[in-house]
Deep mutational scan, measured.
Amino acid sequence: SFQYVPVQLQGGAPWGFTLKGGLEHCEPLTVSKIEDGGKAALSQKMRTGDELVNINGTPLYGSRQEALILIKGSFRILKLIVRRRN
């Protein structure tokens, strides 16, 4: 089963996490790295392996390109929903 975790990061880029996968690579869009001391790490809500399913209220369909555009369009606040295996 899965758990959906809301994450809100503040203060602008860099957000402190790296993505891998996506439709382009025929795999889920997941968090591959969280930078020590970065905003994602400080939130204590994101983990490597989390799947990104929503950015700023926009549902994602797995495209890494789409996710990067939405993330780049976030100035002060980035709201994410990640899906994690229980």
Results as ranks from 00 to 15, higher is better:
1 S>L: 12
2 F>E: 06
2 F>Q: 02
3 Q>A: 11
3 Q>I: 13
4 Y>K: 06
4 Y>F: 08
5 V>G: 04
5 V>A: 06
5 V>E: 13
6 P>K: 15
6 P>N: 15
7 V>Q: 02
7 V>P: 08
8 Q>S: 10
8 Q>R: 09
8 Q>T: 13
9 L>S: 06
9 L>F: 01
9 L>T: 00
9 L>E: 00
9 L>A: 06
10 Q>V: 14
10 Q>K: 12
10 Q>P: 04
10 Q>E: 14
10 Q>S: 14
11 G>W: 05
11 G>N: 04
12 G>M: 02
13 A>W: 07
14 P>C: 04
14 P>N: 03
14 P>K: 04
14 P>V: 01
15 W>A: 05
16 G>K: 03
17 F>N: 04
17 F>Y: 00
17 F>R: 03
17 F>L: 02
18 T>Q: 12
20 K>T: 12
21 G>H: 00
21 G>K: 02
21 G>W: 01
22 G>S: 04
22 G>L: 04
22 G>H: 04
23 L>F: 10
23 L>R: 15
23 L>I: 15
24 E>L: 06
25 H>C: 15
26 C>Q: 14
26 C>W: 10
26 C>L: 10
27 E>P: 05
28 P>E: 06
29 L>S: 03
29 L>N: 01
30 T>A: 08
31 V>T: 02
31 V>A: 05
32 S>I: 12
34 I>M: 11
34 I>T: 03
34 I>Q: 05
35 E>Q: 13
35 E>S: 12
36 D>A: 13
36 D>I: 11
36 D>T: 11
36 D>F: 09
37 G>D: 09
37 G>A: 08
37 G>Q: 08
37 G>V: 04
38 G>N: 02
38 G>A: 02
38 G>V: 04
39 K>C: 07
39 K>Y: 07
40 A>G: 01
40 A>N: 06
40 A>E: 04
41 A>C: 12
42 L>Q: 10
42 L>S: 10
42 L>V: 10
43 S>W: 02
43 S>F: 00
44 Q>R: 11
44 Q>F: 10
45 K>C: 11
45 K>E: 10
46 M>Y: 01
46 M>T: 04
47 R>S: 09
47 R>M: 13
48 T>V: 15
51 E>W: 03
51 E>V: 05
52 L>F: 01
55 I>M: 00
55 I>P: 06
56 N>Q: 07
56 N>K: 01
56 N>I: 01
57 G>N: 11
59 P>H: 12
59 P>T: 14
60 L>C: 10
60 L>G: 02
60 L>Y: 00
61 Y>S: 15
62 G>E: 05
62 G>P: 02
63 S>F: 09
63 S>H: 09
63 S>E: 07
64 R>P: 04
64 R>D: 03
64 R>W: 09
65 Q>L: 08
65 Q>W: 06
65 Q>M: 08
66 E>C: 09
66 E>L: 11
66 E>G: 08
67 A>H: 04
68 L>E: 15
69 I>L: 15
69 I>Q: 15
69 I>D: 15
69 I>A: 15
69 I>G: 15
70 L>E: 07
70 L>W: 05
71 I>W: 00
71 I>P: 03
71 I>G: 01
71 I>K: 01
72 K>I: 05
72 K>W: 06
73 G>F: 04
73 G>P: 03
74 S>E: 10
74 S>C: 12
74 S>F: 02
74 S>W: 06
74 S>L: 04
74 S>K: 06
75 F>N: 15
76 R>E: 13
77 I>H: 15
77 I>Y: 11
77 I>C: 13
77 I>K: 14
77 I>D: 15
78 L>M: 10
79 K>T: 13
80 L>I: 10
80 L>G: 02
80 L>M: 11
80 L>K: 02
81 I>A: 05
81 I>C: 07
82 V>H: 06
82 V>R: 02
82 V>Q: 00
82 V>P: 00
83 R>L: 04
84 R>D: 01
85 R>F: 07
85 R>W: 08
